[in-house]
Design a protein around this nucleic acid. Structure first.
Length: 423
RNA sequence: GGAGAGGUGUCUGAGUGGUCGAAAGAGCACGCCUGGAAAGUGUGUAUACGCCAAAAGUGUAUCGAGGGUUCGAAUCCCUCCCUCUCCGCCA
């Protein structure tokens, strides 16, 4: 959520940035400014009357104590008139505040200056491409066929016990999952991240804090009886660890990592591109979260991007890095890098990580602050990134490393899998 | 699920209608003391919003949340949420 005071003082800039994001309702900006004006005016009047009312109450107390009952009664009747005004004004104020909040929440984050204009994925900027795309033999198989051939993943069983998009991993397939999770967590720890193991369901306040609610309600599984949501990413519980927190300056940056399964309804996305592991309702992911000083967040974003790229390099996967254009970025992000691996059998790029700086967009909702050098509270910046999401990594590994005799496990993973080949 | 107790500042904890944004202690910060440290000692130590060009200052709100009684509520009443203890169930 953008800060209303910022919108008020930087109207032109806000409008200009929202245009980069292809925001369709720029008129909301002026509505917000107008409501804020009303809010301040109303509060001003209310505060004045409250002050008078408080003074009168105090005076009555004084008179009662000194036994001047008659005088006290006189003021009492006067005080009663304040009461009505106060009630009316505070109702007015809270309805203005509510409306202001409802409108402000509809404004997406402002894109960073480096974000390219554009509205479709084709307009994303390719920052770099790394590693050669492997040449596969003519009879190379897509990962879902490899998974079946080597008995690694059973999609049908998942359908039977749950539904489409909930695969069952078996044998070496299951071990590969565990190996990747452990590898990613170890690498994160080496890079200075402190691990968190968190709940996989969250309450409404947490969903709001990171921006999933009320916007993307339909993307999450909702547990109706308890009004809880299955997490779509570890970003939600881990970032919310710092909701309503004021950090000391020397506690920054906060660096956390964590593994969780992720649950996404993915309503309406079916077809050839979601075959196999390409798009699931439940998948595993190791997530990085950082809370930083505003001056450092972009430097940290680059570090996180470098960390993710390091993982892909160690796994020997060809990849590219995209800087998302305004229209393709999420509602909450100011700048996002997507990492995609080249899936050799499918002949296409698969998104395996998304690293974003949210600046103060989340922290304003979370009330996540730190005490700056002047001793004042200030909103911190939040960032997060997948490091990494497993299914598409597995898909690429299986496809790119297939040979006539089996699938070669990357060397860095062997200490975790305890086997070198899937055959 | 049944029965009971309770939610106050960073923490412990006092406060049952007015002088309470809130005693006291601990912690923390800064200063004094010291060769240095400990001890001792002094001062300070919530957040948000408004007014003000800004600072200083000042107004308002906040003692789990929301509503009510009252001139006045941390304190009384109602509703909800949460935590703890005991019982039941149980990895």
């Amino acid at each position: 959520m953008l800060q209303v005071s910022y919108i008020r003082e930087n109207r032109e800039h806000v409008l200009e940035r929202l245009a980069v994001k292809n925001f369709k309702q720029p008129e909301l900006v002026d509505e917000v400014i107008k409501l804020d004006e009303q809010r301040r005016q109303t509060q001003n009047t209310l505060d004045g009357i409250s002050a008078e009312s408080n003074a009168a109450a105090k005076q009555i107390g004084e008179l009662m104590r000194t036994g001047k009952k008659e005088e006290a009664e006189a003021i009492k009747s006067k005080s009663n008139t304040y009461k009505e005004d106060i009630k009316k004004l505070s109702e007015q104020l809270s309805s203005i505040e509510q409306e202001l909040q409802q409108k402000t929440v509809l404004l997406p984050n402002l894109p960073h200056v480096s974000v390219p204009k554009g509205s479709t994925p084709e307009e994303n900027e390719v920052v770099l491409e790394h590693g050669a795309r492997p040449e596969l033999p003519a009879n190379a198989l897509p990962h879902w066929e490899l998974a079946a051939k080597y008995n690694l993943i059973d999609f049908e069983l998942g359908v039977k016990i749950t539904g489409a998009g909930f695969p069952v991993y078996k044998g070496k397939g299951a071990k590969l999952q565990r190996a990747l999770i452990a590898f990613f967590l170890d690498e994160a720890e080496k890079a200075g991240y402190d691990e968190r193991m968190v709940p996989h369901v969250v309450n409404e306040a947490s969903g709001f804090g990171t921006g999933q609610l009320p916007d993307k309600e339909g993307q999450m599984y909702h547990v109706g009886v308890d009004n809880l949501y299955l997490i779509p990413t570890a970003e939600v519980p881990i970032t919310n660890l710092y909701r309503d927190v004021i950090l000391k300056a020397d506690e920054l940056p906060v660096q956390n990592c964590g593994y969780t399964p992720c649950f996404r309804r993915e309503a309406g996305s079916y077809g050839a591109h979601v075959r196999g592991l390409n798009r699931l309702h439940q998948f595993d992911k190791v997530e990085l979260v950082q809370v930083t000083h505003p001056d450092q967040s972009y430097e940290v974003l680059e570090q996180m991007s470098a960390h993710v790229q390091g993982l892909l390099q160690k796994l020997g996967l060809p990849y590219r890095v995209l800087r998302l254009c305004g229209g393709d970025m999420s509602f909450t992000a100011a700048l996002t890098y997507d990492m995609e691996t080249w899936s050799a059998a499918q002949q296409r790029w698969l998104e395996v990580s998304s690293v974003s700086n949210f600046e103060t967009f989340q922290s304003n909702r979370l009330k996540l602050r730190f005490r700056n050098s002047e001793g004042k509270t200030q909103l911190a910046h939040t960032l997060n990134g997948s490091a990494l999401a497993l299914p598409r990594i597995v898909a690429t590994l299986l496809e790119n490393n297939q040979t006539e005799t089996g699938i070669k496990i990357p060397e860095v993973l062997v200490p975790y899998t305890k086997f070198e080949w899937i055959d």
